[in-house]
Amino acid sequence: MGDNLESHTSSAPQPPLTGPIERIDDPRAPIEHSLDLPVSRTRAYDAYVLGLPEWWPRGLTASGSGFDRIDLDPHPGHRIVEHARDGSEIVWGEVLEAEPGARFSHTFGLSHDGDPSRVTIVFADLPHGGTRVLLQHHGWNESNLAGRAKHTDWSQLLERYAAYATHV
């Protein structure tokens, strides 16, 4: 799978992909995952974007046991913000792209120092129904590369997302 997720939005038949797609030779390589869901692109998109506050595990927040909520306004330029019960706010990132049913992209700086990385999710029709969800966590550079290893839990996160998307 290449760096360009645009090439994966066609409706041409593709073999099913699941799980991580690793590029071991480059420490700056994007972290990439793919999963197939038995739901429409609109439902898959809405579950990821609008449902993120529901399916994101509380244990993977900055507030931990003091977690209150996540606010995500799905429009470019708006922030993704975690709110703690003590009133503090932790900015996770900023929405960069939002094409309902097709693509969502945001910066991400929750658990690493340096420049924010970027998470891009593409939703593509499968030939016989359902949606292929392609996630790419990229934008690694010298300032944030030390934090890349903290982002090995996308498989578990996407399992929670998939369960939510198929049962809402």
Rank of each mutant, 00 (worst) to 15 (best):
E22K: 14
T120C: 00
G139F: 04
V122A: 12
G51A: 09
W56P: 05
W56L: 06
P127I: 08
I31M: 01
D46S: 11
E99I: 13
D3A: 14
N141R: 11
A84L: 03
P20N: 08
D68K: 13
M1P: 03
P57G: 06
G147H: 07
A44C: 10
A102P: 10
L134V: 05
V133F: 00
V168T: 15
H33T: 01
L50V: 12
P116K: 03
G19T: 04
H33W: 08
A165S: 00
E6G: 11
E99M: 09
P76N: 07
G19W: 02
Q136V: 07
R148S: 01
G19I: 02
L37H: 06
R85F: 00
W154C: 01
D125L: 05
T9R: 14
G130Q: 07
L158I: 06
G51K: 07
V39H: 00
Q156T: 13
A162Q: 10
S117C: 04
R28N: 13
T9W: 11
R58S: 11
L5Q: 00
A163Y: 13
W140I: 08
A163I: 14
V39E: 00
P53G: 09
P30D: 08
A149I: 11
A47P: 01
V95Q: 05
S7A: 15
P127C: 11
T166I: 12
R69P: 05
S88Y: 04
S11A: 15
G77M: 12
S40L: 03
G147S: 09
D68F: 09
G51F: 06
V168D: 13
G64F: 04
A62K: 11
E142Y: 08
I90M: 01
